[in-house]
């Protein structure tokens, strides 16, 4: 796959269709590839990588990249295309300046899951028949491939590309995923149990802001948390109230726009299941306003910014709020 992608990228650079390519660049070790922009065939040959660890979503970078001169080639996995579509809808990316090649999705791997097994000094890995042979500073270790699958891929919602100019590989379908199971579990808890669950999770937050910075729905020019005039600006929470509020406010800001791309939970150094907060909003929107998937198309109106006589009444808050 990687070779096919590099070959096609070089062709598009050579015939002038695009002047830059966004994809992933090899890191220092076998697992730390990062999104990167390539301008020449040599750069592509040297650094371009597409493997089990290229889980990151490059769509958000196109907010800036699509405003530069010339066209850019973007390789998007199915989940990344939802984010891109949503960004078009919000007038954050310039569609005409991006040439999209849809590429197959995961399952991708999460190095943190390998480390959680007590495997340290990780240099590289090989996938032999779904057994990972992990080369470390201290010898070779093995673990099952499926045990290292990244959280967002475990709950994959769709293998379908919702926007592209061309595809490499085949297109898939929207999946029947089990992504709301844990949300349902939380809903069935008592208010106290649920509060305790979230306090336990949110108290781990070190306020690195990675979740916000990676989120394709968080592209505000000046985020409320960076704006001294917003009244809620802070760099580090000073008590549990501020700790909770950061996450609650962010979840509200992305409600109806969050595509459930899973990037927030993937980057959290503290393993906080942030996707559960956003999925609760998605599930509620589905139940109260009818099925809606942000980023699935370019024309539907977001239920939260649209009015329809079948919409639920505000009293729903009280009705659902009772234990």
């Amino acid at each position: 796959m990687q070779e096919t992608m590099i070959k096609r990228a070089k062709e598009l650079l050579a015939d002038g269709t695009v002047s830059r390519v966004i994809g992933w660049k090899k890191g220092e070790f076998g697992y730390d590839s990062t999104p990167a922009v390539f301008e020449t065939a040599e750069e592509l040959d040297r650094d371009f990588v597409f493997d089990d660890f290229t889980a990151s979503n490059v769509s958000k970078y196109l907010v800036k990249e699509s405003r530069k001169d010339g066209k850019i080639l973007a390789f998007l996995k199915p989940c990344d295309t939802y984010s891109f579509n949503q960004l078009i809808k919000e007038h954050r990316v310039i569609r005409e300046n991006v040439y999209i090649i849809g590429i197959p999705g995961g399952p991708k791997l999460d190095v943190e899951k390998i480390k959680a097994k007590g495997i340290t000094g990780i240099l590289n890995k090989k996938n032999e028949n779904y057994t990972l042979k992990i080369e470390t500073l201290y010898g070779t270790e093995t673990m099952m491939f499926y045990e290292a699958i990244c959280g967002k891929c475990q709950d994959c919602k769709s293998k379908k590309h919702v926007i592209y100019d061309e595809l490499i590989g085949e297109d898939g379908d929207v999946l029947d995923s089990s992504r709301f199971d844990m949300v349902e579990k939380l809903e069935n808890m008592t208010a106290q149990e649920r509060f305790d669950f979230w306090r336990e999770q949110l108290s781990k937050c070190i306020r690195c802001n990675a979740c916000r910075n990676v989120c394709p729905a968080c592209t505000c020019e000046k985020c409320v948390f960076d704006n001294p005039k917003s009244g809620i600006e802070n760099k580090a929470p000073s008590d549990s109230f501020e700790e909770n509020m950061f996450h609650i406010i962010r979840a509200f800001h992305v409600a109806g726009r969050c595509t459930d791309c899973g990037e927030c939970s993937r980057v959290c150094p503290q393993n906080i299941p942030l996707h559960l907060l956003n999925r609760k909003f998605i599930k509620d929107i589905n139940e109260l306003y009818g099925e809606y998937q942000a980023g699935a198309d370019l024309t539907s109106k977001s239920p939260l910014t649209d009015y329809d006589t079948n919409d639920c009444e505000p009293s729903i808050v009280h009705e659902r709020g009772v234990e």
Partner: peptide, 8 residues
Amino acid sequence: ACTRPAET
């Protein structure tokens, strides 16, 4: 003391 440093 670190007896098993990481790759990083």
